[in-house]
């Protein structure tokens, strides 16, 4: 009879967790790569401290790299298109 522990060890069970982890982290990584400015903007909202400053330096470097390889192009182009179609203005 299957116990709690060996139910977790079933191959299908492990595969499902792996697939879920890939979906979660790949989605977040793609979002970070294509919209890196969101992390920089959010960190700028926090008051300065050592941890925030270190994270800000890191995310700014990441955002710069993303920009250099053109990974953030689609976001900016999409944003411009959205604003022009709806007549809205960026905050």
């Amino acid at each position: 009879m299957a116990t709690e522990q060996n139910l977790n060890d079933l191959p299908g069970s492990g595969l499902r967790l792996r697939v879920t982890a890939i979906v979660v982290y790949a989605t977040l990584a793609l979002l970070a790569l294509t919209i890196p400015q969101s992390m920089v903007n959010r960190l700028n909202d926090f008051g300065p401290n050592a941890a925030r400053d270190a994270a800000l330096t890191l995310t700014q470097a990441f955002a710069g790299a993303s920009h250099r390889i053109g990974a953030d192009w689609a976001y900016h182009a999409g944003r411009r298109l959205f604003l022009s179609v709806t007549g809205k203005q960026d905050d």
Binding site: E4, L7, N8, S13, R16, L17, V19, T20
Partner: peptide
Amino acid sequence: HNSRPSDIRL
């Protein structure tokens, strides 16, 4: 009990 990965409804 431990959570079961097989219960994740992705």
